[in-house]
Amino acid sequence: MITQILKLTSYAAVLIFIIGIAYRWWKWSSMPIHLRWELYPVPHEPGRAKYGGGYLEEELWWTKNRNTSVIGELKELLGEMLFIKRIYGNNKRLWALTYPFHLGIYLILVWFLLVLLGAVTTSYAHAPVPSSSTWSIFLYYATIVVGVTGALLATAGGFGLLIRRLINPILRDYTTILDYFNLIMVLLALVTGLASWFNDPYFNYARAFALSIINPLISPPHLNPVILVHIIALQALVAYIPFSKITHFIGKYFTYHRVLWEDEPGSSELSSRVGELMALKMPWNASHIKLGESWEENARVIANEG
């Protein structure tokens, strides 16, 4: 009975995750335009990014077509996501903890994919994992190696980050209760996951439960209390992620692509969007600001008085 309920709540957790992430994406993508920084280098400048150049250095640049590289941006984004280069360049001691933590999480995500592929292979290709096929054998051993490695790295890095936040006075001052709560939520799923692995070293129960998830006609297996607690903790984390700072993994696109690297030349569309913002009425006042006047009107008065 409990496993049947957990099967249904698994669908609910994933649905909440998808809807929550979609809402976050929509909310961030529909926000007003950011303050133009025009910082260089920008990786979509082919041939110029390596020395920090841009299209503005060209003579009569406004008469020429821009040549940009999506590959350059993807390489920079992936380099930052996979290796966390900026933290490495600025704080190697922190990187020594945050990198295994993130790498472990990436491996766990790969583990989830391998488990689901194993369930699909078993259910729809009628090739149980493990079996005599090369693909089945690969899934079996890859699941074990990737899952155990990811869980150990993420758990070690997560506890290291928690301890560092507690003992480092600078980090402690900037860490909120919610930051601790987020990290503890992740660690709870990781620790219970490791405990489940001790009870299921070859992930047989994990495969059986995944099989019941992708095939509604199959009943979930009977699970011991440790694995049940892990599934509950994992479902809670999945449903919670869209409403927490953990969504910074999608925020990186907006931080980089929409802020750091946004250097599109002025256009009628951009001017129109800026004009809309400048026409907004001020909801507050001060000695230099008039309540109810637009940004543009207030700026004009300040400029004239100056």
Rank of each mutant, 00 (worst) to 15 (best):
R258V: 06
L234F: 09
N224H: 04
P225G: 13
P220T: 01
D263H: 13
I231P: 01
I231C: 02
H230Q: 10
E269C: 03
E264M: 13
Y240N: 01
P242C: 07
V259K: 14
H257N: 10
Y253K: 03
S267V: 15
H248L: 12
G251Y: 15
N224G: 13
S244E: 02
I213C: 06
I246E: 01
S268E: 11
F243Y: 05
T255C: 13
N224Y: 03
Q235W: 01
V259Q: 13
P216Q: 08
Y240E: 04
A239S: 12
I241D: 08
Y256V: 00
I241G: 03
E264C: 10
P225M: 09
N215Y: 02
L228I: 11
Q235E: 12
H248Q: 09
L234W: 12
Y256R: 10
V226Q: 08
S267Q: 14
W261I: 01
T255P: 05
P216K: 06
L217Q: 13
I218D: 03
V226C: 01
V226W: 07
L228C: 12
I227N: 04
I227R: 02
E262K: 09
Y253M: 01
H222T: 09
P221N: 01
F243H: 04
I232A: 09
I218E: 00
L217S: 12
I241W: 03
I231W: 06
H257I: 06
I250H: 06
E262M: 11
I218N: 05
P216V: 10
V229R: 03
L217P: 13
I246H: 00
A233P: 02
G251A: 09
K252D: 11
I214D: 05
W261F: 02
F254P: 14
G251W: 15
V259E: 13
V238C: 09
H257C: 10
A233N: 05
L228R: 07
T247G: 00
Y240S: 15
H222L: 12
I218S: 04
S267H: 14
G266T: 15
I218K: 06
I241V: 15
L217G: 10
V259Y: 13
S219G: 05
R258H: 12
W261Y: 05
V226F: 02
S244K: 06
G251L: 14
S219H: 00
P242N: 11
V259C: 12
L228Y: 00
S268T: 15
Q235Y: 05
P242G: 10
R258E: 15
I227Y: 03
F249D: 06
Y256F: 15
H257R: 13
